[in-house]
Write a protein that binds this DNA or RNA. Structure first.
Lengths: 209, 209
DNA sequence: CGTTCGTTTGAGCCCCCTCAACTGATGTGG
DNA sequence: CCACATCAGTTGAGGGGGCTCAAACGAACG
């Protein structure tokens, strides 16, 4: 995570880059020559299998780094969720960055740490939780992400997005959400808007008992 | 990853700690006051659900950091797989470490990056792969980890361990391994020793087509 | 009004889980 | 040396949760 103040100073060491909504600007398997810092917009990070199975591994937003965790080739793909602005750095340019921002390594470390904690929680979710538990966890995650802690959630993605994020199919996502509604745990006010009616129940469900 | 040379120098800034095999020395949810560096032995990192469902999220060995990625409380548990030696640091002691090892942040970053790549691959595995694909991926992972690239693999864990690592049950692990043997992709020479008979087929299976 | 695309709903099936019994290796005491 | 207990692994039978395939629905848009 980079301060907004620093972002303008960053510009002189990088190429600024605008990406259209929906464009996949990092392709898994391609040579990882560059890395990026998101300056505005949201990014979907995912992995694909040859037959089209998709797993979303996370999201990135303004201030986040992208592509540093790669080896010789990118280990994931990244797609702009909306209009996107990026700073692109050559891999070797990282040293310049380090000179100019002495604490950059510290910040990188903090971001990586946070992501690693997230990743562990998601491995538990993907490996061991039922569909109901996954959806409950997902809804609470959205809830906690919200600045106002409002119990009305505006889903940031389609059913396909949720399914690929939770390791389910769109049908199961739809059915499970409706089941949770029947049980009065949530109310689906619009397709992309859900009200949490019973937070305690959702929390016990999310943690699995 | 810390150089063996440096490990002795580390000692004066930390408390040395010996842990018995099988002991859980980090408990999820407890206050994360300390962090650790493994100096010898192997560690299993996992998360638990109230009803006992377990997901192993990774392993750590000599030179690896442990517990840095936590917030106020540990987000995971850690168990010694065999006799284990650790250096324990107070959370605040990290600053001393940084002074003494100026490039420690860089090393930490590299380790975190590698783990993050691993984590993404495992999310794809846990979210989208079938049992056959998971086992094939697992066997190839063991194969690549081996220094000699020998096609004979000595499994480093029991069926329970494999199951908790791959998000399956022990029965499915057993059945699937035997199915792979019937199809001549592997040979189960002993319970904990497997020979890879058809690497190309295992690789296409692991990547899912 | 018709098309398109995302979502919902239904029916059926399959993969994996659950529960249970069996096998085999290891160890222990008589 | 053998009877017995224990525990990891295997094998079998059955059930269920989530997937697949298909059709209906509904909102956005020309």
């Amino acid at each position: 995570m980079i301060d907004p103040d620093d972002m303008s100073r960053l510009a002189q060491y990088s190429h600024r880059l605008a990406v259209m909504a929906g464009k996949t600007f990092i392709q898994e398997g391609e040579p990882a020559n560059d890395f990026f810092i998101v300056t505005s917009g949201h990014v979907k990070i995912f992995a694909l299998m040859p037959d089209g199975r998709r797993q979303i591994t996370g999201f990135a937003q303004s201030g986040d780094f992208l592509g540093l965790a790669s080896g010789a080739t990118y280990g994931f793909s990244a797609e702009a969720l909306g209009p996107l602005a990026l700073c692109r750095f050559s891999r070797t340019g990282l040293n310049i960055l380090k000179r100019e921002f002495p604490d950059i390594e510290h910040r990188l470390m903090e971001e990586a740490s946070r992501e690693l904690v997230q990743a562990q929680k998601r491995m538990l979710l993907l490996g061991r939780k039922t569909a109901r538990e996954r959806l409950a966890s997902f809804l609470l995650e959205q809830h906690h992400r919200s600045p106002t802690r409002e119990i009305v959630i505006n889903l940031p993605m389609s059913r396909t997005g949720i399914a690929d994020y939770l390791g389910l199919t769109i049908e199961t996502v739809s059915r499970t959400l409706n089941a949770l509604q029947r049980e009065k745990l949530i109310a689906i006010t619009q397709v992309t808007q859900i009200t949490l009616l019973n937070l305690p129940a959702l929390e016990t469900l999310a943690r699995g008992g």
